Amino acid sequence: MSAGKGYTMNSTNQVQDQKVWLITGSSRGLGRALAEAVLECGDRLIATARDPAHLADLVERFGKRVRVIALDVTDEQAAQAAIAQATDAFGRLDVLVNNAGFGHISPIEDTTMDEFRAQIETNLFGVISVTKAALPLFREQRSGHIIQISSVGGRIGPSGRGPYAAAKWGVEGFSEVLAREVGPLGVKVTLIEPGGFRTDFAGASTAIRKGRSEYETTVGATARFQEEYDGKQPGDPKKAAAAILHVASLAEPPLRLLLGSDAFQAIEKSDLLKTTRDREWKELSCSTDFPV
């Protein structure tokens, strides 16, 4: 079934049972919008954040259908404890959403190795850590859906976002391998690739360093665009949450789903260009084979 405009409609490809979710980074942005949508539709949720105080209102509104816990995704033991709390509270886990992450703007030359490690640790190794914590449970259940919040930056390398893109490209490759390994076990994997959404990701959550004058037309251009774009992004977080809920309801969800017209247009253009360039260099590429 194509999602299209009919994502709110029932389908023979949908599973109507109530689900148990765990969402990392639930306190703001897409994670917060999704957490609210999950609870509003009647499902149950383990909502996680570095500071669970930011999630207290969810407990007030939704009571025992939500459990709020502190989770630093870079802490392997904490990730395992979060999965255990899901089963302790609700008896199972159906959907894991790896949403926690952040990204700054800076030239690669001016980005320290500590800054590289911090972004890659959260955006890539955090995803791997929480995913691995859930895999034994999903394998034993012979069911489960792992939803990775990636980015168009996981398929296009934007100037100024070296560490973020490196991590997201890693998430893409990791998840594609994961899907091949766990698919036969009844476990689904979906990469969500958003474009620009009106969250604080492009605002307060992003540190911007334009760098020296030599990077004015590259990193500087990205920084200016980000500053002007904040608050004007085409993406609606509530509609993104609805789309993710729809994907989670499908018996055969896509491996990748772009979110936003800007994301679709950018990736379509980029993929066509890559195919064209590959064909231009086909003769040299194939010249490296042994003679037949």
Rank of each mutant, 00 (worst) to 15 (best):
D271M: 12
I208N: 09
A165C: 15
V182G: 01
A165E: 03
R180H: 11
E216R: 09
F102V: 08
G144E: 03
T12I: 13
Y164W: 09
L124D: 00
L272M: 11
D271N: 12
Q16S: 14
A263Q: 02
D43T: 07
I69C: 13
A204I: 09
E280N: 11
T74P: 00
L258D: 06
S143I: 01
G103E: 07
V219Q: 04
L284I: 13
Q18P: 07
Q16F: 12
D51H: 10
A33M: 02
S270K: 14
G160Q: 05
I149P: 03
E268Y: 07
P291H: 13
E283R: 13
G157I: 00
I156K: 06
S2A: 13
V97G: 05
R67A: 15
K232I: 00
R139K: 15
H104Y: 08
G31D: 05
S261H: 11
S159C: 12
Q141H: 03
E40L: 13
D75R: 07
L39D: 02
K232H: 14
R142D: 01
S150K: 00
A223S: 03
G29D: 09
D17Y: 10
A134S: 10
G211S: 04
T199V: 06
R44M: 09
S106N: 14
S129R: 11
G91E: 04
L22E: 05
G186I: 05
D43H: 15
T131L: 03
K132R: 15
K232Y: 05
V177R: 04
T48G: 04
G29V: 05
R50D: 03
D51W: 03
A84V: 06
E121F: 08
L284C: 05
K239Q: 15
T131R: 03
